[in-house]
Computed example of a mutant assay.
Amino acid sequence: MSNPTFFDIASRAGVGTATVERVLNGRGGVRPETVEKVVAAARALDYQRRLPEAHRGILRIEVLLVRPETTFFARLSAAFERIAASLDKSIMVQRTFLPEDRPEAIAQRILEPGIRRSGLILAVPDHPSIGEALAQVESRGMPAVQIVTRIAGSRAEYIGIDNYAAGRMAAHLLSHMQRRGGTVVGICHSHIYQVHRDRIRGFSDYLGEHPRGDFLFAEVLFGGDEDTRSAMMLRETLQQRPDLVGLYNAGGANGALNDVLRRHARDRDIFFVGHELTEKSSQALRDGTMDVVFDQAPEAQARRSIDLVLSRLGIHDLPIENPPIRFITFTAENI
């Protein structure tokens, strides 16, 4: 293929040919983010001429995360680190951890990062201030994708499992595999993550559509994915509901919940479904404290989010389909 023309590069970058000429001839006067679009388009089209030194800079993709101490976010962060190591040196993946309970700080980082970036990946709670900030940067042409939850008002693509289906699957397995009748409860972080709302809604809908006369879905507990709080809530529930036979944890803190059940006389009588396969949850499956674990493959979510941003930046022409990530169901028989 012949060397692309300024017109080819301009068409791909969505700018005028005069802008391309200024960038590729190093004449300045072009905004940094526009320079990066032009350079990305030139690279994607295999432009042969050496780019001016000032414009052979780094394309930075920033990943906003929370809760580095939790299993899911730790796995997600590690996945981005591994992917970054495999990319061209001209592409940087920067991970930034922010406080989960300070949406205004997350919104501020979205609007004023203090760094030059070309793309944005978010794994943060859904909050109006975050949605407003994201809408602003999207209106400026910033490629953005979402992991973990859908942020209201954003056009950014969502990458993740079908959480409603996961909740329904949890209820399906519990209803068919737990022979004892009694009370069932759910537990999740809170209302701040759409994924947890979807999981609990799917769980509730299934039990409502396929009722068992001896099952009662009694309540949803909000543990904030915090070990101490979640464990305390489960201990109180065990005391208040001696007929507890089912527990669906739509969020984190599986380890703390397993510790409570191991110390309880009825631990093997309670059918426990949770998310995220880890060493501890694998051991809980082998021990019989947990019965089913859904793993949502954060590594696959990280890979697809990077691919989507690079595609939006024009780094490659490969079509990126984005169906729901398939979650994997684990029991003691297949770990």
Rank of each mutant, 00 (worst) to 15 (best):
125 P>H: 06
232 M>K: 14
294 F>C: 11
280 K>C: 07
149 T>M: 01
191 H>D: 07
82 R>W: 01
315 I>H: 09
309 V>D: 04
200 I>W: 05
95 R>F: 00
197 R>W: 06
135 A>K: 10
172 H>W: 14
309 V>S: 03
207 L>M: 11
297 A>M: 15
309 V>G: 06
194 Q>P: 02
313 L>G: 01
84 A>Q: 15
162 D>Y: 08
226 E>K: 13
322 N>P: 03
303 R>A: 12
137 V>F: 10
133 A>S: 13
14 G>D: 03
3 N>R: 07
40 A>T: 07
293 V>Q: 01
230 S>G: 02
134 L>N: 04
236 E>V: 06
109 R>G: 10
42 A>W: 05
181 G>I: 02
199 R>Y: 00
209 E>A: 09
201 R>L: 10
135 A>T: 04
60 R>H: 00
18 A>N: 15
193 Y>I: 02
331 T>H: 14
79 A>Y: 11
203 F>S: 09
122 L>K: 05
327 F>N: 03
332 A>V: 14
242 P>V: 07
66 V>G: 00
106 I>M: 06
81 E>W: 12
111 L>Y: 09
66 V>T: 11
267 D>H: 12
186 G>R: 00
81 E>Q: 13
252 G>H: 01
154 S>D: 11
34 T>N: 14
133 A>K: 00
109 R>E: 14
128 P>D: 03
146 Q>S: 03
114 G>V: 06
266 R>C: 06
181 G>W: 06
176 H>Q: 14
128 P>C: 04
96 T>V: 11
269 D>R: 13
225 D>V: 03
89 K>Y: 15
282 S>V: 01
43 R>N: 04
26 G>A: 12
226 E>A: 15
37 K>V: 10
129 S>Y: 04
330 F>D: 02
13 A>P: 00
279 E>P: 07
214 D>K: 10
212 R>P: 04
207 L>F: 08
261 L>E: 14
110 I>E: 07
179 R>N: 15
285 L>G: 04
226 E>T: 02
281 S>C: 04
85 A>S: 15
274 G>S: 13
92 M>D: 13
154 S>H: 06
78 A>M: 07
59 L>F: 15
30 V>R: 01
172 H>D: 10
62 E>S: 12
173 L>M: 15
15 V>R: 09
7 F>Y: 11
220 V>T: 09
56 R>T: 14
299 E>Y: 08
63 V>S: 00
46 D>E: 11
94 Q>N: 09
315 I>E: 08
182 G>H: 04
84 A>K: 07
322 N>H: 02
285 L>Q: 02
143 P>Q: 11
230 S>D: 08
154 S>K: 06
318 L>M: 11
174 L>T: 14
190 S>Q: 00
323 P>R: 04
67 R>Q: 08
142 M>G: 08
82 R>H: 13
182 G>Y: 09
171 A>S: 09
21 E>F: 10
108 Q>K: 15
295 D>W: 05
243 D>H: 14
291 D>W: 11
